[in-house]
Amino acid sequence: MIALTVNGKAYSLDVESETPLLWVIRDELGMTGTKFGCGIAQCGACTVHVDGEAVRSCSIQIGDVANKNITTIEGLSPDAKHPVQQAWLAEDVPQCGYCQSGQIMAAVAFLKEHPKPTDADIDANLTNICRCGTYVRIRSAIHRAAALMKT
């Protein structure tokens, strides 16, 4: 049995220790906001927070995050009122939306490290793929979120 906390709730799971965190979240816990995109930590659609840090959950084994605190998009805020979510809403960022949970989780962690980011900071640190090409609005939304978080 492996113990972990997801979105503040404690779980004890009977799964193989090498199971990727992504598939535990999706198929064991039934939380489907975190997406499968590539399976090799390339695209970031599966990004969650492990003890507050952005992690590509497809490429981390459940055994390595035992007893840690996991936050998924479902647990980011109870009412979608996190400043990054509000900025995403204001900028109408998503298109197909499949990558956006990961984009938002990556942006939240990024803004903790870079509260006043430049475009260059954004480009250098955020590498999640969006095939719809929402990048221009992602940039705008991150600046907007940074402003919201400052006030």
């Binding site: 939380m31 489907t32 906001g33 998009i73 479902e74 109408d92 939306g97 956006q100």
Partner: peptide, 12 residues
């Protein structure tokens, strides 16, 4: 669809 795509609730 934006509200559903910022909190992971949109069903694919």
């Amino acid at each position: 669809d934006t509200p559903l795509k910022i909190n992971g609730s949109a069903k694919f």
